[in-house]
Amino acid sequence: MTPPDASGDRWSDLGRPPLNAPGLRRAIVRPDGLWTSLEVVSATGSTNSDLAARAADLPEGAVLIAEEQTEGRGRLDRRWSAPARSGLFFSVLLKPAEVPVERWGWLPLLAGVAVATALSRSAGVDTALKWPNDLLVNVGGEERKAGGILAERTADGVGVVVGIGINVSLSDKELPVPGAGSLLLAGAVSTDRDPLLRSVLRSLDKWYGDWRTAGGDPAASRLQEAYAAGCATLGRTVRAELPGGRSLTGEAVAVDGHGRLVLATEEGMQQPVGAGDVVHLRPWTGAEDTRDGGVS
């Protein structure tokens, strides 16, 4: 039975029907595939937190989807929320035992490539990547954040929970901040969440399988090449705000083999910065600009 929405009435918003959990399971959970279970709940605080709490008792490939998240988390514990059934809010459990742990940092970037590839195909929306974890779409000629990715190690250290949030049908009035966007506002050919989710999960299966087969090597799996091709950050001058009030400004010239962003500074140095070291990454025009725009 499809779960009710947060209000208890599954048909309270006919423009945003609930996900078809049985249909999704039939399409996604297969004996020879990555996905081993798929659960849809009407509402929860955070799918990442819920899945991480159960990770030790679940096999790889568990998928947890919420019709509404009341305490959604982004990188550095930033909070966000959206109306019920207005987007795709889900987490997946991955346990890449055959991949060296030092390469697990590629998982959020892998998820970004997989999601962008899927949305370009199934929604007809060109989706770019802002390093390290944002999904960008074009709304009226303006680049806006329509989603984000959060990867967290499980408590036992043997897995990673990857959380993905995508704004699908949010209108202008529903945006959490002016700089946010949605697939609807970007002119998507479809905002039907069931096929969109199927497309994303199949794309994740493909990219994760290739990466795992290559032992997590981002070059051999072509992940590094694909990420660079879709990364809107590359070629731009940015300022990386670091802990302790420090900052580093330079042109983003590459994503290295560890998934770090390489900045070419005015001093002629090429300095890599890791996602865990960056508080904010902002475009830099030479003038002080403290606007967040919802894309950090």
Rank of each mutant, 00 (worst) to 15 (best):
W211V: 03
N133R: 12
T213F: 09
D217V: 03
V278C: 10
A151I: 03
R144Y: 01
D126N: 15
G250M: 09
L261C: 13
A62L: 10
G235D: 15
L38W: 02
G124W: 08
G148P: 08
T233P: 15
V40M: 09
A116T: 06
R121H: 15
T47L: 08
L281P: 07
H280Q: 12
E142F: 02
P4A: 12
D5K: 00
R73C: 05
D156F: 09
P100Y: 05
G293M: 04
G157W: 05
Y208L: 03
A287I: 10
L184M: 14
Y227M: 09
V162K: 11
S120K: 06
L94M: 07
G216M: 01
W211G: 05
A21W: 04
L263H: 06
L248R: 09
P59E: 13
S221T: 15
R144P: 06
V29L: 03
S171D: 15
G147E: 02
L234W: 08
G15E: 12
R193G: 09
V115G: 08
L58I: 04
N167M: 01
G209H: 00
L204D: 01
D292W: 12
G74Y: 10
V278F: 09
G286H: 07
L94R: 00
D32V: 00
P83S: 07
S171F: 13
D194I: 08
P17T: 02
T233Q: 12
D289K: 03
G259D: 12
G245W: 08
T233A: 14
D172V: 08
V161M: 09
T127S: 02
W11S: 15
G286N: 07
E288F: 15
A118Q: 11
L150W: 01
V115I: 07
A128W: 12
V189C: 01
L223W: 01
G105T: 07
A116W: 03
D205R: 13
W11R: 15
G215F: 06
F89H: 12
A82M: 06
D32A: 04
C231Y: 14
A53R: 14
D9R: 07
A56F: 13
N20C: 04
K130L: 07
E71I: 06
A240M: 10
G230F: 04
G23S: 13
L14Q: 10
A252H: 07
P96I: 06
L107K: 04
A146T: 09
I28L: 01
N167S: 00
N133G: 04
A228V: 10
W211E: 01
S81D: 13
T117Y: 04
E68D: 03
Q270F: 00
E67T: 13
A229F: 13
G286W: 10
V200Q: 05
L281V: 10
A275S: 00
P176F: 11
P59C: 11
T117C: 03
L109M: 14
